[in-house]
Structure formats: C-alpha cells, structure tokens
Design a protein around this nucleic acid. Structure first.
Lengths: 187, 187
DNA sequence: TTTTAATTGAACAGATCAGTACATAAAGGC
DNA sequence: GCCTTTATGTACTGATCTGTTCAATTAAAA
C-alpha cells in the first residue's frame, strides 16, 4: 500500500510540528528526525504548506476522537461528562508532551485571516463545540448556547494558562467554574 | 539623545512582530518596513533575539498600563472594574489591529521551557493577575484566589477565541460568566 | 566653519530555507 | 530468475536568514 508511507510521514511530521512549531521546523530537520527521505516527502506532499495542512487535519481527527472517547469513559450522564471533560484536560496538561493547542499555535504563526490554516483551526473548534453543545443541551440548561460558549472559553483559557504557567490547579479551577455556571443554569 | 533611536526601533519592531510573528519577521523586512538601517538595529540590539526580548518587555509595560488605565476609567468600585474589564477586552477584540495576545503567540513560537521568552510571558501574566487579584479581594469574595484564577481563565479563553472566531459576542459571554461567578462568591 | 558623532546604504559571509534532479538501492509480484 | 514500483542518498538551485564590514552621508556640537 502506497498510502501507508503517506500516513507515516504525516504522523511523524505532526509530532514534530506540534512540538517545535511550523516555521521552526525545516524540511531537512523533518528528514533527519523521521528518517524518511526528502524525495518521499515531496512525492506525497507537493509543498511544505500542504504537509502542514494535512498535519492539522490529522490532528483535528485524532485529537477530537481521543477527547470524545475519554469524556465518554467518564460516565453516561451529561453533567458527569462535562465536568469529566476538565479532568481529561488535566491529564493532558500533565502529559510531558503537552505543548498547548496545535490550532491556537498555528493561527499564531499564520495570522492572515481567511487562510486555510485559520479555517482548519476554526473548523476544529466548531466541531468540538458542537459536541459540547449536545452535552449541554442534554442537561436541560436554561441557556445552552451561552453555557456552551462559556465552557469553551474556560477550556481555551485553561489550555493557554497550563502552557504558560504549568498544569498545577488550572483544570480544576476551570472545572469549578464550569460547575458553578452549570448550577446557575439548572435552577 | 541616543536612546530615542533605540526606542524608535523598539516600538516599530514591536508592531511588526506582533502583527506578523517573530520567526516570520526577518531583519531585512524590519529594515524595509521601518526605514531604519540594519547598522542601527545591530548597534542598539546585538542580536535579533535581544530585540525580540526587548519588544516583549515593552509590550508588557505598554499593554498592562493601557489595560489598567482603561479599567479604571470604567468606574471606582471593584465589581464595576472587573466587569468593565471585559468591555475593555471587547474594544480590543474589535480593533482591526487585534491579533491575539503577543505573549501567548510568543510562547507558541518558542516552546522551550525556561526560555527567557517564556519567563517574560509568565511574568506578564503574573503581574496582570496580581492587579485582578487586588480587585477581587476588594469585592469581599469568599475565595478570592479561585475567583481570580477563573476570571483570568475567561480572559485568556476570550482572547484566543476572538482571534480564531472573530470578536462577536466573545467578551460578553465571558463577562456574563464572570458576573455569575462573582455572584456565587458574594452570597 | 571645523570637528565629532550618529546614521545610512550596500555589499558581503556563511548558514539554512524550500524544492528539484537523478542515479542507486531495495522491495514485491510474476 | 525478471520487472516494476517504491524509496533512498546526494548534490544542487536560488532565495532568504542572521550578522558583519566599511565607506559615504547626515546631523550635531564646538
């Protein structure tokens, strides 16, 4: 199968891009660290930009799937899942490979509006937001749209804060805030 | 005065670094856009890294001062100021020159822990956090430390979200969350 | 005006950037 | 065995990167 090489390149490039950033990662570094020849890289991806975009799309898929799966391992009812989501975040923050959100960093490096990088990032956030919204609606909250957006704000804030200050306490502070907001929305 | 040239370089470099990013901004681009010769740049700053760090330090000073001033224009009592803070954020998000938080982006581009960039970013967040904490304590909140951290999470989340999705509604959602959290902390 | 300091422009070095060309080497199917 | 596909290694192009050098120019001080 020819596409297995493509997948291999993609997964390895994703790890390095996530760890070191896009502009800081040259193709030669990618060759050296992955052991894959440059010829192969340019066979499956016509440009570095194309590889970056494909990496982001893969990250979207892997990350959302992983998040949803871990959330649903926390329990069955929506409140448990919403609050459990912040425990999932906490586990991520304590992972030594945690380096903030790849999409936040990507939009930081490619600030031009309407660029594909920005679109993929926005789409990723929208898709995950849709999932959270479903959970919030299931709780019977009085203003599910507002509550959804607020939970997402806490999530983004926690990611950025854990990256700058370290993981300690960050996710639990966010969880307590989400819990308080949930309570005011249920009575 | 020789330091006025230094200041000029610093202010102009800051604007370009903030707009385009650090790695995406070469010294030649800086020369072309600022009209300042490369010789002068390297006279006042020995390396690009030094210029970057000085830019971040200037940003810290300018941005915190501006934020505090605008917050205090919103009123005298701490609750008005805390909630007004989110209106200040909203004005910033709608500024066409808004491009997220320079420190979040900086730590994204220079992910190595313990690096000066990271330290300056953390210090910036700490200093502003200290200011918010003072306001929160003045409100008589039951758990001022927790509430402070939560308000800061909402702030970081709002910045990142406004950058990816645009400014609409973001700051007000955060403001409503902060208001609800304040209420649960005052009763 | 004369002298001194500050600034510029432009060329340069050496490294690294994205991307290409091509000949060699594995690997798999028949 | 043979043949085709797939992958590798290496060298290369031209652009761009950070940083240096130095003579010419402007501005300020005397």
């Amino acid at each position: 199968m020819s596409s297995s090489k493509r997948e291999e390149i993609l997964h390895k490039a994703l790890d390095i891009f996530y760890r070191d950033g896009f502009r800081a990662t040259g193709m030669d570094k990618l060759v050296k660290e992955t052991g894959i020849s440059k010829t192969s890289m340019y066979k499956y991806f016509r440009t570095k930009d194309e590889l970056i975009l494909a990496s982001l799309r893969l990250r979207d898929e892997l990350f959302r799937n992983s998040l949803v799966r871990k959330i649903e391992e926390k329990g069955d009812d929506p409140i448990t899942q919403i609050l459990g989501f912040f425990d999932v975040l906490e586990e991520w923050f304590y992972d030594p490979d945690f380096r903030s959100c790849m999409f936040i960093k990507a939009t930081g490096e490619y600030p031009e509006r309407g660029q594909p990088v920005n679109n993929i990032a926005a789409e990723h956030k929208n898709l995950f937001g849709d999932y959270i919204r479903k959970l919030v609606i299931k709780t019977g909250a009085t203003d599910p749209e507002l509550l959804t957006q607020q939970i997402l704000l806490l999530k983004e804030g926690a990611i950025v804060t854990a990256h700058i200050h370290g993981p300690k306490g960050v996710a639990q502070n966010a969880k307590l805030a989400a819990s308080a907001l949930l309570n005011t929305n249920l009575n």
